[in-house]
Design a protein around this nucleic acid. Sequence first.
DNA 1: ATGGTGGCTGTGCCA
Length: 259
Amino acid sequence: MKIATWNINGVKARLDTALKWLGEADPDIVCLQEIKSVDEAFPGEAFERLGYNVTTHGQKGFNGVAILSKRPLEDPVRGLDGAPDDVQARYLEGVVSTDDGVVRVASIYLPNGNPIETEKFPYKLAWAERLIARAEELRALEEPTVLAGDYNVIPDAIDAKKPEVWVNDALFQPESRDFYRRLQALGYVDAVRSTTDEPSYTFWDYQAGAWQRNNGIRIDHLLLSPQAADRLEDVTIDRDVRGWEKPSDHVPVIVTLGL
DNA sequence: ATGGTGGCTGTGCCA
């Protein structure tokens, strides 16, 4: 079973690109972030024609997450507990039944948090705490679980072409990196980093020729519960997609699990 | 060189 995460930066602007990629990569489950669409405007039929069930948690203009799944997504959970006044659509979770049991997946869009001297950074950290709480609950289930998404966290210096330019950025603050380490301390495995020590970027800014210079960062992550990590067979970053016409600034990251 | 690019029920904000 192939499970992917992809920040598509606008589902309507990216529809042709997304359909092309789905046709080539043929993932079973896709966690999308930054759909930038309300649920009613999400182009679900186009994905259903490719055989996907579509579950969305949208928002007008910004944010928004979705999960495409060849098998139905059961028991969808929209949003994280702990902040009833938070209207930002950044979390969608559900369960998919396989021939070999179940796999639980979450599509996560962590707040960017910049600039760090504004209220945006404490919002990021508070949101991260709520995700930690949910990750603890899910770990106790002892199921194969994949926490996939745009974490807006650069875990280590190796995860940036120029780490020195990120030292004052929310993505590389000690608090952001500590949050990411705490998830791993709970038992979640960073799929990409568990299979390679090489720099492996997932995002290249639209500006200043970042793609052409390979000036990238690794911020899109798949964190695997121990029961999922035991089944990990392959990890792929589809970096070529960044060079397509009308690309997102992020590329898909895919894990293959023996499920 | 204090810039640059892209998406959105926008006309500034977010990344």
